[in-house]
Design a protein around this nucleic acid. Structure first.
Length: 804
RNA sequence: GCUCGGCUGGCGAAAUCGGUAAACGCUGCGGACUUAAAAUCCGCUGGGCUCUGCCCUUGGAGGUUCGAGUCCUCCGCCGAGCACCA
């Protein structure tokens, strides 16, 4: 036996990383690439703690895919950057008392080092950070485009206010009534906020989901978030001639509407309140306003509300029904008013029971007698107590009733969405200033594009206070500015924008980072976009991914882009948990990759993470199995080093196994089923060792297939096998379907569906021949005995079942 | 409450169309090598029994089928998302 060098990942990985950097191995020619493939992964937020195992799991999975495509002959562009603005960084900066502008570069340096050491194929020439003025110049430019298109507007709105972080939060940043970050109960405040009209795009955002290749779980989350409901607006008229419009998804139940409920803030409330009820109504409105936005939205509490002393006519029955106000009706959804059908709506039922309002059943459910108890919300029944519509199924009735009321102008079909406009204002410091100047004469004026970026000034006191005004307002030489239109005294907008705006377009910037006079170069963009493959976490399913689609649609409509979908293919990776719980600093279960990489090497750790479970499902991190991967790599190492230059042993069974392995690894890698691809390579190595085969011809394809998973050791072994170029210059091996599907197969022999014997036959043997052998098998004979075989079921190459 | 995903050996997991359940790996046990240990290599490793063989086993109970981890119905548990959205 020859003396082979020992496998030392540390020196070997450093060597190859230096080699890649020196040779610019991972820097495709963006202008001349023949087969561009844009391999994108969600860029990280550079936290002070550094990269954790969850990040590395995601990045490794994405990098494997990129390397796989590279080996298939694509010019792969795999960029990386940092999503470094936002409340995370700012809160941390406040906590340690250092300006985020000094902290963030330190964090980024740490991330950069960690990202380099695990061996991803990043093109560092195109690194970006959202906090770089050269980047956020264009984030501001995008704001200006939306503003000019009438898609950005300012609105005074009740917002979620976190008293601890002293900032507004988006609805989606409020979890169970508490601040997503600090857990403090959120309050209601009224502030002027900038919004983007994403609701104008609700239908397109929803329809688009049908055509894009995304993880179904992600699509589902987006559909639910957009929350489309079909229904109708119905008109209820008061004796004074006021029309109250309600939105309902169940117009079929209008005969059962026994009262109306308006949101306490509804504009008609004042007018419709009878004199003797005025004080009670005012008191109730005050009570509701004093509550925070969130506790009002918590569903499972007792209902409250007051009668306002007036009535409206039910358009179907013509009877006068009382009008109430109650906080369970929200002004933001629908028309801010509902028709209450207590017999067929749970909330209305609770309310009616509590305030002793009439309940009238108008839908008879299936079956005899009573059917299900009220409130019955099923749409499966037939109408009753509904005049001419009695006996009609709900769905038909809904259409017919709307048509009938529409004739008198009392109904309009209507589609309603749950999605709200995107509030992008943040009363904070650490973000791109919203590029607007307020002028006494001209109103809000966008900063001219030539004056962008509006740089975020480096200020000492970036602490927010509870005025609700950004700290930027305290910085006078920045705050006061000439109006770009009339030259008069103006004031800058002091809000900064939401981080999700930064990340809504970063994929457009990567290929064009060297251009400073345009956000994304048209030629580069045409060549590289939309993104070929996008991999990231489902925690961004409804925020980042929805906003990115929206911004792309807008830029497309405005003529800046030729496509309206940024990521036609997206796959959500699973979550790495520790001891059954999500990794978080507060739980103290965060695993840092550095120590593992130091101990085992990046290749072993990368593969181990991928072997833990299916990439798209994630898994529980534990370190018990890592040695298995290391042993596997050692075996490959030994096989390659022992393989003689001239030839080496081969074996027909191993050759066949090779072709099957290539088939499986190719399919599994394409499908991101990395765990089973690794298992297939292990099987192949086991087979080689058992058969004593180890020729270079058998090993080269293995080393290529290994390259996406364990890139450093693959390079080394490729060189040992006598190759001079990088293994990335090699072509992914092809397989011979014929060879992969020949050979013997083991067939299961069943009698009456129970396994009784096994039989090895050549692949593709016809039924008669197999049955003949089977019937002569003594074990089978025993079970068949003297009974007559009534039926034979034969599945080619798999099983034969005798029914007696 | 609604929607979705999951539940398979001691553990992580595999299993195109309904067709040999447990591939691959870990752990554990036994053996080889060694003065010894580590490393490495070989073997065994779901449970039971009347053990040359047979029976049971994919959260539970039914069903469809020659045949069910896979399809259908009901139930349980775990996780995620949404949640007074009319």
């Amino acid at each position: 036996m020859r003396n082979i060098p020992s496998y030392d990942p540390q020196s070997l990985e450093a060597k190859w990383q230096a080699h890649w950097a020196a040779r610019h191995t991972n820097e495709p020619d963006l202008d001349r690439a023949a087969r561009p493939f844009y391999n994108l992964m969600m860029f990280p937020y550079p936290s002070a703690e550094g990269l954790h195992v969850g990040n590395m799991f995601a990045f490794t999975g994405a990098d494997i895919y990129g390397r796989f495509k590279r080996l298939q002959g694509f010019d792969v562009f795999e960029p990386i950057g940092f999503d470094a603005f936002g409340i995370h960084s700012e809160n941390y900066a406040l906590q340690v008392g250092t300006n985020p502008a000094t902290l963030i570069p330190q964090n980024i340096a740490t991330f950069r080092r960690q990202l380099r050491q695990f061996g991803a194929m990043y093109d560092w020439r195109h690194e970006l950070s959202t906090t770089d003025p050269a980047y956020y110049k264009w984030t501001q430019w995008i704001f200006v485009q939306l503003f000019k298109a009438g898609l950005a507007y300012k609105k005074r709105a009740a917002v979620n206010w976190c008293p601890k972080d002293k900032t507004v939060l988006a609805n989606e940043q409020v979890i169970d009534g508490r601040c997503e970050r600090c857990g403090t109960a959120v309050e209601q405040r009224f502030l002027d906020q900038w919004f983007f009209r994403i609701t104008d795009f609700a239908e397109r955002l929803l329809a688009n989901l049908d055509h894009i290749d995304w993880s179904s779980s992600t699509k589902l989350l987006q559909r639910n978030w957009i929350g489309r409901s079909e229904g109708a607006e119905l008109m209820f008229e008061t004796p004074s001639g006021k029309k109250i419009t309600v939105f309902t998804t169940r117009p079929d139940t209008v005969f059962g509407a026994t009262y109306l409920v308006l949101a306490p803030e509804h504009p008609l409330v004042d007018e419709l309140t009878a004199v003797e009820h005025r004080s009670a109504v005012k008191a109730y409105q005050r009570e509701v306003q004093s509550k925070d936005v969130v506790s009002r939205r918590v569903g499972d509490k007792t209902k409250s509300g007051v009668f306002i002393g007036s009535y409206a006519r039910n358009p179907a029955t013509g009877e006068a029904i009382p009008i109430w106000i109650a906080d369970y009706v929200l002004m933001e959804y629908g028309t801010g008013a509902i028709m209450a059908v207590p017999a067929h709506d749970k909330r209305d039922f609770e309310f009616a029971t509590q305030f002793k309002l009439p309940i009238r059943q108008v839908v008879a459910t299936e079956g005899e007698g009573e059917g299900e108890p009220l409130p019955s919300v099923s749409e499966g029944g037939k109408l009753m107590n509904s005049g001419a519509f009695d006996g009609m199924p709900c769905r038909d009735a809904a259409r017919k009733i709307v048509a009938w009321l529409a004739e008198r102008g009392l109904a309009t079909p209507r589609v309603q969405y749950r999605l709200h406009d995107w509030c992008i204002s943040r009363q904070r410091y650490w973000g791109p200033p919203i590029p607007i100047i307020y002028c006494e004469q001209c109103g809000p004026v966008p900063v001219p594009e030539k004056d962008l970026p509006v740089e975020l000034p480096l200020i000492e006191d970036f602490r927010p206070d509870d005025t609700g005004v950004s700290p930027l307002a305290r910085h006078e030489e920045w705050y006061f500015v000439k109006c770009p239109k009339c030259g008069g005294q103006g004031r800058r907008e002091t809000d900064v924008s939401d981080t999700f705006l930064d990340s809504a377009w970063y994929h457009l910037r990567y290929p064009s980072t060297e251009f400073h006079d345009r956000p994304f170069d048209p030629a580069r963009t045409t060549k590289w976009l939309p993104v070929s493959s996008y991999i990231g976490g489902n925690e961004h399913a409804v925020l980042h991914l929805l906003y990115a689609r929206f911004i792309c649609m807008v830029l497309n409509d405005l003529g800046h882009l030729q496509f309206d979908t940024p990521y036609p293919k997206f796959r959500a990776h699973g979550l790495i948990v520790k001891d059954g719980a999500k990794m978080s600093k507060s739980r103290g279960n965060v695993v840092v990759p550095d120590t593992y990489i130091k101990e085992w090497g990046a290749d072993t750790f990368r593969m181990y993470l991928m072997f833990l479970g299916p990439f798209q499902e994630g898994g529980d991190f534990r370190d018990e199995g890592i040695v298995g991967i290391r042993r596997f790599l050692e075996k490959v190492w030994t096989l390659v080093h022992e393989s003689p230059a001239g030839g080496g042993a081969t074996h027909p069974a191993v050759e066949q196994k090779l072709h099957r392995t290539i088939r499986k690894v190719t399919a599994d890698t394409e499908a991101l089923q990395y765990n089973t691809a690794i298992a297939a390579m292990m099987e192949y190595v086991n087979e080689m060792r058992e058969r004593g085969a180890g020729s270079r011809e058998l090993l080269k394809p293995l080393v290529i297939m290994l390259a996406p998973y364990a890139p450093h050791v693959a390079e080394e072994l490729w060189a040992v096998l006598g190759e001079r170029e990088s293994v990335l210059q090699a072509r992914w091996p092809s397989f011979d379907e014929q060879l992969a599907s020949t050979g013997d197969v083991e067939i299961a022999v069943q009698v009456n569906g129970k396994l009784r014997s096994r039989l090895v036959v050549p692949r593709g043997m016809p039924q008669e021949a197999v049955v003949k052998i089977v019937l002569s098998d003594p074990v089978v004979k025993k079970f068949v005995d003297s009974q007559k075989v009534r039926k034979v079921i034969y599945v080619q190459d798999r099983l034969v079942n005798l029914v007696v």
